[in-house]
Computed example of a mutant assay.
Amino acid sequence: MNRLQTALAALLFVNSTAAAETSAWVETPGGDVRLVALPAAADGSVRAMLDIRLHDGWKTYWRNPGGSGIPPSITISGAELVSIGYPAPKRLGDDEAHYVGYDEPVQLPLRLDKAVGTAITATVFLGVCKDICIPVQAELTVDAASEPFANPLEETAIAGAEASLPRGAGDGFKPLSGRWAADGKSVTVRFEAPTEGPLPDVFLSASSSFEFGAATSVRREGDAFVSEVPVLHRPKVFDLEKNPILLTLRAGETSMESPLAID
């Protein structure tokens, strides 16, 4: 959303510390954020999540926001950030200001490792948008060793966040192939998806140096579905074996995510 570059209303920085496994909510005009973490396991691993409670009418971005916007940024101290999980997003905005993200509360599961000491702090930067966009920065701290056993409510919340993530590829819902256009400015994606219900939405994501636009309307070709995805920025040097492009598909309430092999 171009307003992010042109209408920055405020930069909100709040430090939220809690001697518990859930930080206090950091409240902002567009939404509230908190960090939830389960007690560290014996091997130092921690299951956690960033809980984003968007207010009515406000939106935030996916990891590849499309033609405009900024992806969430999460850095961790007190542990090592292994991965950030993202539920399948939605296409938002319009043709002139297309972006990809969420228009309702969303939870991002976090996998942490090598937790040391007791405190874990997440430094978070988000863009939340309505008529204007507000960059929100917050520090959220929890004590992942404050209790020997997981709080059932926190455990249920994190399990629900993990369950909301796209499933892996399987029979009837999987990528088939990807092919660069001759000029490198788009990728043609072929995939299998459920034949009943809404046509799938197609999203691509990769390292931060790639940027993808809005996929064209999905069409049937034989037993497969096909869509073209614009490549808004492609780095001169990249290694798809180490950092593959991910294909995310959303068909109604069902979603799938898997690396996409590209010729």
Score class of each variant (00 low, 15 high):
residue 10 A to T: 11
residue 180 W to Q: 08
residue 110 L to Q: 01
residue 73 S to Q: 09
residue 253 E to G: 11
residue 250 R to P: 08
residue 192 E to N: 13
residue 81 L to S: 15
residue 156 T to V: 07
residue 163 A to Q: 11
residue 57 G to Q: 09
residue 27 E to Y: 01
residue 190 R to T: 12
residue 247 L to R: 08
residue 34 R to P: 15
residue 119 A to T: 08
residue 63 R to C: 01
residue 35 L to E: 14
residue 179 R to W: 00
residue 54 L to E: 03
residue 70 I to P: 10
residue 77 S to H: 12
residue 132 I to K: 15
residue 39 P to Q: 12
residue 130 K to M: 05
residue 136 V to T: 13
residue 75 T to V: 01
residue 249 L to V: 06
residue 212 F to R: 14
residue 16 S to F: 09
residue 235 P to E: 03
residue 201 D to G: 04
residue 165 L to D: 10
residue 222 G to F: 01
residue 154 E to Q: 12
residue 236 K to E: 14
residue 184 G to D: 13
residue 140 L to P: 14
residue 112 L to Y: 01
residue 99 Y to D: 10
residue 246 L to I: 11
residue 247 L to C: 01
residue 125 F to E: 13
residue 109 P to I: 08
residue 171 D to M: 05
residue 120 I to S: 10
residue 19 A to F: 09
residue 150 A to N: 08
residue 41 A to G: 14
residue 237 V to W: 04
residue 182 A to C: 13
residue 246 L to H: 11
residue 99 Y to A: 03
residue 42 A to K: 01
residue 182 A to Q: 10
residue 116 V to R: 03
residue 7 A to R: 14
residue 256 M to D: 05
residue 8 L to A: 15
residue 88 A to L: 07
residue 118 T to E: 13
residue 166 P to I: 02
residue 18 A to F: 05
residue 246 L to S: 07
residue 86 Y to D: 00
residue 87 P to R: 10
residue 124 V to T: 14
residue 28 T to L: 02
residue 165 L to H: 01
residue 242 K to H: 04
residue 228 E to Q: 13
residue 175 P to F: 02
residue 42 A to Q: 02
residue 170 G to L: 01
residue 76 I to D: 13
residue 112 L to H: 06
residue 154 E to G: 10
residue 112 L to Q: 10
residue 54 L to M: 02
residue 255 S to R: 00
residue 242 K to W: 07
residue 254 T to G: 11
residue 239 D to E: 06
residue 207 S to A: 00
residue 3 R to A: 15
residue 96 E to T: 04
residue 249 L to E: 00
residue 65 P to I: 07
residue 15 N to I: 09
residue 231 V to G: 15
residue 7 A to Q: 12
residue 33 V to Q: 13
residue 186 S to D: 13
residue 124 V to E: 08
residue 256 M to L: 02
residue 174 K to A: 12
residue 241 E to M: 01
residue 255 S to G: 07
residue 213 G to E: 12
residue 5 Q to S: 15
residue 241 E to D: 11
residue 84 I to D: 11
residue 149 F to I: 07
residue 59 K to P: 14
residue 18 A to G: 14
residue 224 A to M: 08
residue 19 A to K: 12
residue 254 T to W: 06
residue 117 G to Y: 10
residue 109 P to M: 00
residue 156 T to C: 00
residue 233 H to S: 15
residue 174 K to W: 09
residue 235 P to V: 00
residue 76 I to W: 03
residue 205 S to E: 02
residue 127 G to S: 15
residue 144 A to V: 11
residue 217 S to V: 01
residue 252 G to F: 05
residue 243 N to C: 03
residue 20 A to M: 01
residue 108 L to N: 03
residue 76 I to L: 06
residue 196 E to T: 15
residue 74 I to H: 08
residue 205 S to T: 03
residue 114 K to M: 02
residue 64 N to P: 05
residue 73 S to P: 12
residue 65 P to F: 04
residue 6 T to S: 13
residue 109 P to V: 07
residue 184 G to K: 03
